[in-house]
C-alpha cells in the first residue's frame, strides 16, 4: 500500500504563548514546536498498515522550514520519505486553503492507496482539513476511525460515535481516513531510526508554485488570552434545593459530573 500521512507541526503543549504584533497570530520565536498529537496516531496507524501489507509511507507536512522537523520525526519512526509544502505564512490559510495546497502536492504522487490524517490540529482545531482534502481529491472518506481492516482492495472500518456507540462501515480504496486519537500507542523513534532518517529523502515544494493561491475564505481577526475571573455565587433554599442546584451547576456549568 502507498500511504500518505498528513502531519502538522504545532506549538508544544507546554509552550508559553505570546501574541504576535497585530494580534492575529502567536509569536513563534522562543517557543518549541512538536508533531500534532492526533497526527502521531495517524502516523502509527500508517506504519502498522505498512508492516502488515507492505508498501511505503510518505509523510506530508505544510508550513515554514521548521515544520520539516515533524517530517524528520515521522521518518525516524519508520516513514519512507517526506514531502514538505513550504510556506512561511501558512497560518493565514483557512482549512480549505490548506487542503487545496496539500491536495496539489499529493496529486503529484501517482498511485496513492490511502491518505491518513489526525482528527484535528492541537493549535487551531478546525478538524476540517482531512475531509476537505478527500473532497478535493475526489476520494471517499470516513472520520473518527478506531480500527482499520484491509482486505481485497476494500476497508472495513470502525468509527466512534457518541455515547459509547460504534459504527462499522466499508470503503473502497483509495480513500482518506481521519484517525481517532488514542486508537494505538505511537512508537518512540529509536536511535537507529533517527540515524537512518538522515539518509531519507524530503522533497520540498513551495506552496506558491502549486497554483493554489486563491484568497482565504476566512481569516483570523484577533486572538485572545482567556480572561480568568472569580465569581462567588450563593445558593439559597432548603438543603435539598441547594443540593439540587449545586448538582445542576456541577453538571451544566463546571461540567465535572
Amino acid at each position: 500500500m502507498k500511504i500518505v500521512v498528513c502531519i502538522k507541526q504545532v506549538p508544544a503543549k507546554d509552550a508559553p504563548l505570546a501574541m504576535a504584533e497585530g494580534g492575529a497570530w502567536i509569536k513563534e520565536t522562543d517557543i518549541g514546536f512538536e508533531m500534532n498529537e492526533p497526527d502521531a496516531y495517524a502516523l502509527e496507524e500508517a506504519l502498522r498498515l505498512k508492516e502488515k501489507h507492505g508498501g511505503e509511507v510518505i509523510a506530508v507536512s505544510m508550513g515554514p522550514e521548521r515544520s520539516k522537523q515533524a517530517i524528520k520525526e515521522a521518518l525516524a519512526k519508520g516513514a519512507d520519505r517526506g514531502i514538505h509544502v513550504a510556506d512561511e505564512r501558512f497560518y493565514t490559510l483557512d482549512p480549505l486553503g490548506a487542503a487545496r495546497s496539500i491536495a496539489a502536492a499529493i496529486r503529484r504522487e501517482p498511485g496513492v492507496d490511502l491518505i491518513l490524517t489526525g482528527l484535528q490540529s492541537d493549535d487551531q482545531g478546525f478538524g476540517q482539513t482531512g475531509v476537505l482534502l478527500a473532497e478535493l481529491l475526489g476520494l471517499p472518506h470516513a472520520t473518527i476511525i478506531m480500527q482499520i481492516d484491509v482486505a481485497d482492495g476494500r476497508m472495513k472500518l470502525k468509527r466512534e460515535l457518541e455515547a459509547g456507540w460504534f459504527q462499522w462501515v466499508e470503503l473502497p480504496l483509495p480513500a482518506l481516513l481521519s484517525i481517532q486519537s488514542g486508537i494505538n500507542k505511537p512508537r518512540y523513534a529509536t536511535l537507529k531510526g533517527i540515524m537512518a532518517a538522515k539518509k531519507k529523502e524530503i522533497v520540498s515544494v513551495v506552496r506558491a508554485e502549486l497554483g493554489v493561491d486563491e484568497p482565504a475564505t476566512q481569516h483570523i481577526e484577533r486572538i485572545y488570552v482567556p480572561h480568568k475571573s472569580k465569581k462567588t455565587e450563593m445558593l439559597t433554599g432548603s438543603p435539598k434545593e441547594v443540593a439540587a442546584k449545586l448538582v445542576e451547576k456541577l453538571r451544566r456549568e463546571a461540567r465535572v459530573l
Partner: peptide, 28 residues
C-alpha cells in the same frame, strides 16, 4: 504532557533537530 525540560538560556537553540529527536525519545 511530559516533562517540558529546563531551559532558561535557550539552550535548545544550540541543538540540531536530530539531537532534539534523540532527547525526545529518551524523555518520553
Amino acid at each position: 504532557a511530559g516533562f517540558p525540560g529546563v531551559d532558561f538560556i535557550d539552550f535548545d537553540s544550540l541543538l540540531t533537530g536530530d539531537e532534539k529527536l534523540v532527547r525526545q525519545t529518551a524523555r518520553a
